[in-house]
């Protein structure tokens, strides 16, 4: 009876305080879009090469470290940002040359393992280069809150949401409205077929890793401004896994939809039903939801259903 009461009471709370419920929804949307920013990087690389890039989280960290490291050395924000983009492009070239090229035509699991190695390398290299102390990232985004009709809204979260929306729009145009985007999709569908019609695989890989590096910079700025730039930043990749499972590994809009479902779901779950089980359900709630989705829709909401002849 108590359990039943506990399950029902939150609905009464929601009805009793709708303004607070809106605040929870906004918090969920904001958090979800932050997860999506990281998930987008995974999607891009998986879409173009079928490789699950385990190093995406550490790429976010490396990008943020480079940006804040340059700024700490007196480089103006805009120039530091430009240099960080350059560093991420160089990194993409290096990854293609050193990691991917020798592994062409290898099983995906081999490429996946190579990205695990890349994770450890980038983590150690970043630490050696920029140190491991916590760094403040101030790119002029105010982290203040203000009230709108009794609802507390945070400027940083609002900026992150707008940035994610713009990024998705740009990526959608890139994938569907440009020649390179179409070539990326062709490579994703079939490496050999793409090669046979003259699409350069190496160039495509460099481009896609560079774009993923760009997405990592944006995610690094947003997360770095929120929690400071430090090595645990790479752990946010763990939060984007359920987002990918939900949205599908190959869909850009799916990464956003997955992020929103996870973000809003975990906030509502934790705030209203968390106390029933002693709290701290925010982390595993996302994985629980992802597992349920796997049962009924393994390819995710927007992912491609792969049917292979055996």
């Amino acid at each position: 009876m108590d359990v039943l009461y506990g399950l029902v009471t939150p609905f009464r709370d929601i009805a009793g305080s709708p303004a607070f419920f809106v605040e929870v929804l906004i918090g969920g949307v904001a958090a979800g879009l932050m997860y999506s920013l990281v998930a987008l990087g995974f999607v891009l690389i998986f879409k173009a090469s079928g490789v699950f890039n385990f190093a995406q989280g550490v790429m976010v960290l490396f990008a943020a470290l480079t940006l804040v490291g340059l700024m700490e050395r007196g480089v103006p924000v805009v120039l530091a940002l430009g240099l960080t983009v350059l560093v991420m492009i160089l990194l993409a070239f290096a990854i293609e040359r050193v990691v991917l090229r020798p592994l062409v035509n290898q099983e995906h699991i081999i490429l996946f393992m190579a990205t695990i190695g890349l994770t450890f390398f980038l983590e150690g290299f970043g630490e050696m280069l920029w140190g491991s102390n916590v760094k403040r990232l101030d790119v002029g985004i105010p982290d203040e809150s203000f009230m709108v009709a009794g609802v507390l809204v945070n400027r940083l979260e609002l900026t992150a949401a707008l940035t994610a929306a713009i990024l998705v729009a740009v990526l959608a145009v890139f994938f569907h409205g440009t020649r390179i985007g179409r070539a990326l999709r062709a490579v994703a569908d079939d490496h050999e077929a793409a090669l046979s019609i003259g699409i350069p695989l190496k160039t495509i890989w460099v481009i896609v890793w560079s774009v993923a590096g760009g997405v990592a910079i944006v995610a690094g700025i947003m997360w770095g401004a929120k929690s400071g730039v430090q090595f645990s930043l790479s752990l946010i990749a763990l939060k984007s896994l359920p987002v990918l499972i939900l949205g599908g590994f190959t869909s850009v809009p799916g990464a956003i939809a997955g992020g929103l479902i996870i973000g809003v779901g975990e906030k509502i779950g934790e705030v209203y039903w968390g106390p029933l089980v002693g709290g701290a359900i925010e982390n595993w709630f996302a994985y629980g939801l992802a597992l349920v989705f796997l049962l009924f829709r393994p390819q995710g909401l927007f992912g491609e259903k792969i049917i292979e002849r055996v």
Partner: peptide, 21 residues
Amino acid sequence: TLLAVDHPGQEQGATWLQVRR
């Protein structure tokens, strides 16, 4: 009121919403 935060604690949005309430 006891409010738990799971490791590593990078995202605490729900916790602080409860603090607000």
